[in-house]
Design a protein around this nucleic acid. Structure first.
Lengths: 247, 247
DNA sequence: TATACGGTATTTGTACGACAAATAAAAGCA
DNA sequence: TGCTTTTATTTGTCGTACAAATACCGTATA
């Protein structure tokens, strides 16, 4: 019934990730009751202690709910801690059906331009250096080959650095979510024709604006970056989000 | 060394909450190494199993880090899952030093106007009814007494309802954060003279705009609500956040 | 002296077994 | 039928034992 994918060691991490993916992907639906701990442990060939550890972890992320004599049941998506870093890691490649991706890009469109604007005001020298460095790494491959894709990891780092530089404790929580979204973007970019050069140009404008301490420009440049990404993903984002860039 | 506040039952929930509050309040500082599990359990008079359960929970929220033969150490604030609902619940009344409150209100200023705009487009009949109902409850007391304060719980529900109505999976995660911020606002409002009537008026404009499917008006009305709150809290929010309302 | 190696002690991780507590479901009863 | 009691199931807690990782220290060697 519950068997780990071939070739995976039966350990806590893999069992946890496996179950998370079952739930997040929808294979284990809302309100499904999982087997009781003893038989559940037996199915994986581990101790009850370990399966309890795993379930406790899922419980902490809001994925399941446990009650005496009722058992462990899957909670609805509205209870999941979707911004939890570990949860996003475990779900990589799954939280990217159009429903998630749409919500995610919408969120980015709300958060990131503002973060860029704040960064333009608050970034310290270290932040600036980091952002500039990430940007340089992004386009390094393009020096040799005109059509080379952007460095994914550098791209992710870039967006995380900007968010970090904005100095808001809560906005930092989005780093992981953005990472997930970007990884998926890259995955799709194999199938889609993308104008890497244009994208790099927008990123450049963000860097410059932040260095020049110009929040308005940083804001609109980041909007440009995101709208490019949205276009590449072929997503239809509702035009409702209010940004100067729309007008 | 570690003793629960007087009158609290020694159970998992109370121990967890106690430790969370010690960490979040800064009494247990970054990199502090906690006692080993055995003596830690002894200090609370519980089993090692239970203290491990508690620590596992804190670990899941990013508050601590555990390593064999090193022990359990407190992680820095940047690793905390600040938007985790449970964590916010446990931290109630603590995450409200100016540093947190400022970040929180800044976040709200970024999120909520956009959420209101989206809600104006996407809210279904049920959502509208809920929002309208919350609003009515907010001001109910004012019918009798001109200077009566607003109903806190209704106020919180109102903001959560708007966020829920915007239909974005990730934005929903903020409900808890906002709850925390509002509770603190209310706490302070005992000391501060607040124009409840003006605040209610702004809320009214939000409701009307959403019902009239006017995202722009919903956006600016929500800005008004938040700016009122910020004024009441006597916070100095950087004027960098880009909103139509600024101009 | 400095470095590499190896043993030891400490601390978390995993396993097992037993019982407690909660509660859903069944049985008994007026 | 409607209420109470019993029973069975499932998670929660506890204690013990051992495994695994690793910081620490002592020793040997270049």
């Amino acid at each position: 019934m519950f068997v780990l994918p071939e070739g995976l060691l039966v350990n806590k991490r893999n069992i946890t990730e496996y179950l998370v993916r079952q739930i997040v992907s929808g294979k284990l639906k809302h309100n499904t009751v999982l087997p009781n701990e003893i038989s559940f442990a037996a199915q994986f060939g581990v101790s009850r202690t370990m399966i309890r550890d795993v379930l406790k972890s899922l419980e902490g992320k809001g994925l399941i709910e446990r009650k005496t004599n009722v058992g462990t049941r899957v909670r609805s998506i509205h209870s999941w801690n979707l911004l939890d870093q570990e949860l996003l890691d475990w779900s990589r490649g799954i939280l990217t059906q159009s429903r998630f991706l749409l919500s995610l890009m919408e969120l980015r469109l709300i958060i990131e331009p503002q973060a860029a604007a704040l960064a333009a005001v608050r970034a310290n020298d270290e932040d600036l250096l980091k952002i500039r460095g990430d940007y340089a790494r992004m386009g390094a491959d393009m020096e040799k080959d005109e059509n080379a894709p952007l460095d994914t990891e550098a791209d992710i780092d870039f967006h995380k650095s900007v968010i970090k530089a904005c100095g808001n404790l809560f906005l930092s929580q989005f780093g992981g979510a953005i990472q997930g979204a970007l990884h998926h973007t890259i995955y799709l970019s194999n199938k889609v024709q993308i104008d890497h050069k244009a994208s790099l140009g927008c990123h450049r404008r963000v860097v410059d604006a932040i260095e020049n301490r110009d929040p308005q420009k940083a804001y609109s440049a980041m909007c440009c970056v995101l709208n490019n990404a949205i276009k590449d993903l072929n997503l239809k984002i509702s035009g409702v989000i209010i940004s100067e860039f729309d007008s």
